[in-house]
Each structure stands twice: as structure tokens, then as C-alpha cells.
Nucleic acid binder design. Structure first.
Lengths: 210, 210
DNA sequence: ACCATTACTGACTGACCAGTCAGTAATGTA
DNA sequence: TACATTACTGACTGGTCAGTCAGTAATGGT
């Protein structure tokens, strides 16, 4: 019955709301999917009412698109910068790119976007198109340049580059996906470090020009 | 205005309904997700009314579970039989297992179950648990035995088997997932054959004991 | 031909939720 | 202290859909 000085019931924090709402929305979309996510829950997790959510995002679909775009774009530039400034051998560049992707995206909450995009692509073809052009194409470019460099210097064997890009990245994506799908259901999985080490081991041996 | 002898408006085909409903449900669940799938649409695609669907499946969730179980179980035994009767080297056994999986599951409508299970695991932990125990564990056993055999004969290098299993299968899963997520949105992808060839090439070279 | 059985139908309902908006209170200003 | 502005609230509405069930018609038996 007593109310020892609580924080004011209502707070006005116009600046912080969008980011907090996006973070809450990412959690819910990744965990439940788009259709099963209730905007009231998203708003509650962000500490506001549903009405406030609609002050910042015009619709559920708008919010969904914002989650994808705002989540991924800030990180894309980093990888590109990394490629540009690297001057070692292709082997260590490839290794660095994959490990850095895991560190910055796969291992963080952003990794959930991979699962989210895969799950909802059918319902939002325009968002899928956007994601493909602004994320996948750019990401594939990084790997393509790395492989081309390695083949040019004779470090790597001469294989089909376009399919190799996808084959090489698939285990990274599956590791991120696993963390947001079956792993939380108590389905066993060893630690990411061993997985990454094995992937790099197999991969670099497989690429090696003997 | 004329009605040239049409098929009877109502047909009674008790035997065929469940399979037809399951096939239609798989299509819709894979394409739209569980929550966004309307049972009226599923029933319509199977050529019956919604009421009929409820004669065979007690609820939307029951239907979902049946799609997963009925879809995958019939195929699991095949892989196990293949392992048992194989007598060549581990190299060709591994290659055979992967190609056969693609042929029987990945390339068919059943490949959609992979995406479906990943998307909905969070909403159906009990189905995820079931899938893990009856599909993933059994599938991993096949690869584990294959790798162990190859390491024992000296064909393969001695690497961490548990993580290698997941790393090796990840590109197969991603290929199946892609077909049911971004690929239908017009996002470019080369043909599966090249992809599989590159994967096997990289993989067998990476495993090789030099 | 009539009846009994049962596979099948589709209008209905109750619950749920995206999206709205009139009202409330926090903040800045004078 | 009074007023203006506006960030925020939450009860409400309208539409959608899972699940129901009284009724319909296809089939097989006599």
C-alpha cells in the first residue's frame, strides 16, 4: 500500500523510444515470428503502451522492415572496411572475415535476423528483395574478392567461385540460425568455438593448393 | 449456364483425405509459417471444406505435428539402410549419403520441413524436441559412423567429429532452406548441382589425410 | 425403392489483436 | 503559478480466423 518514491509513472523520452522498440521487436519477431508477435507485448517490453509504438512506427509491417534495415545496415560497412585495409595473405583474410562476422553478428542478437528473414521471406517479398540486395549481395562480394585474391596468388585451388561463396558461408549461417531455433529448446549443441575451428580447419585444407 | 456432366459435387474419399490434407498443409506452413496459414486455405487446396479438415485433425497444432512427423519419418529408415549395406570406402559413402539426402529430401517438398521446423521451433518446443530426437540425432548418427569409419581406415584426418558432423551438413541444410525462403522471391541462385559438386570437392579435399 | 449410416458442408461464434483516438500528464516557458 | 505544447496512454472498434455443429447428400444394404 505504500509507494516509496517510485520513478514517475510516465516518462517522456522521445529520443530513446525508437531504438528500444526496435530492440524489443527484434526479440519477439525472432522468437515467435511476425504473425505470432503481439505489438502490445513488444510495447510492454520496451516500457511503453501500444499507442506509443504507433507514434513511431506506422504499422506492424513498417516496424518489421525497420527491424531488418536498422539491424543490419550499420554492420555491413565494417566488413568492407576490413577487406580494404587488409594486406596479409588470403588465408588469414578469409579467416578474419568469418570470425569477425561471428563476433559482430552471429554471436549477437543480430544473428536472429538471419532466421527471421528466412522465416518471413515468403510473406514479405519486398523486404526479402531489399535484404538480398543490401546484405547478401554485399556480403558475397567480400567473400568473392577474398577468394579471387587467394586464387590469383596461388594460395587457393581454382574452383567455382560463386558456389564456393555460398558453401563457405553456409556453416556460419546455420550456426547463427541454430542459436535462435532448436538450441533454446534444450536440443544439445557444443560450443561455437569448436564448431568454428573445425569449419576453418576443413575449409582451409579444402582450399589449399597442394 | 450449362452443366456438362461435372464430377459429383461432393466426393467421399475417407482414405485419401489425410494424405491430401497433409500435403496441402505442408505447402502452406512452409510458405507462410504456422500462424499466417489459414486452415480454410489448406482445406480448399485439398479440395474439402474446413469442417472436413477437423474430421481428420483435431486442431491446427495437431495438423502441424502430423505434417512434421508424417513427412520425415518414412525417409529416415532409408539412410540407415544405406549405411548398413555399404561396403566401399568412407569417401564414397559420405558422398553417397549427402547426394541421396538431397535427392530424397532436399530437392523435394520435404526440404521445406527444415525451414518450417527452424521457423516454428520457438512456438512448439515439444515438436522441436521430437524432431531433434527422431530426425537430427538419427541423421547425425549416420554421419558420425561414416566419419569414424574414414578416420579408422586412415582415409580422413583425425578431427573433432561432433562439430565436423554439423559443419559438413550445414551447406546441405542451407541449400534446402534457400529454396523455400529467398529463392522464390527472385533472389538469384545458381543450380544445386554446381553447389553440391563444390561442397563435395571442398569437403573431401579438406578431410583427406595427406 | 426405402432406409441407415456416415463423410462432408458451411454458416456461425467467440477470442484475439492490429490499429485508432479522445483524454491525461509531463515538460518548457513566461 | 498559469498556460501551451506534446509525449504518452488505454479503452474501444472492426476484421480475421480457429473451432463447432446442425444439416446435407453420397453410399451401401435390404
Amino acid at each position: 500500500m505504500n509507494h516509496p518514491q517510485e520513478a514517475p509513472v510516465r516518462q517522456r523520452r522521445k529520443e530513446a523510444r525508437p531504438a528500444e522498440l526496435l530492440a524489443a521487436a527484434l526479440d519477439h519477431f525472432v522468437e515467435r515470428g511476425f504473425a505470432a508477435t503481439r505489438l502490445e507485448d513488444v510495447a510492454a517490453q520496451a516500457g511503453v503502451s501500444k499507442g506509443t509504438l504507433y507514434l513511431y512506427f506506422g504499422s506492424k509491417e513498417t516496424l518489421f522492415k525497420a527491424v531488418i534495415e536498422q539491424g543490419i545496415l550499420p554492420v555491413m560497412a565494417q566488413g568492407e572496411a576490413m577487406l580494404a585495409q587488409h594486406d596479409g595473405d588470403a588465408r588469414s583474410l578469409l579467416q578474419g572475415l568469418l570470425l569477425r562476422w561471428w563476433e559482430l553478428i552471429g554471436a549477437t542478437r543480430l544473428g536472429g535476423i538471419v532466421k527471421l528473414m528466412i522465416s518471413e521471406a515468403g510473406n514479405f517479398p519486398d523486404v526479402a528483395q531489399y535484404y538480398y540486395e543490401h546484405v547478401i549481395v554485399r556480403g558475397r562480394n567480400l567473400l568473392r574478392q577474398t577468394l579471387e585474391r587467394g586464387i590469383a596468388t596461388g594460395e587457393f585451388r581454382d574452383l567455382d567461385i560463386e558456389s564456393a561463396i555460398d558453401v563457405i558461408f553456409a556453416p556460419m549461417l546455420m550456426l547463427a540460425i541454430w542459436r535462435h531455433s532448436l538450441a533454446p529448446c534444450g536440443c544439445g549443441k557444443q560450443d561455437p568455438e569448436t564448431y568454428l575451428r573445425t569449419h576453418l580447419d576443413l575449409l582451409l585444407n579444402g582450399l589449399e593448393n597442394k
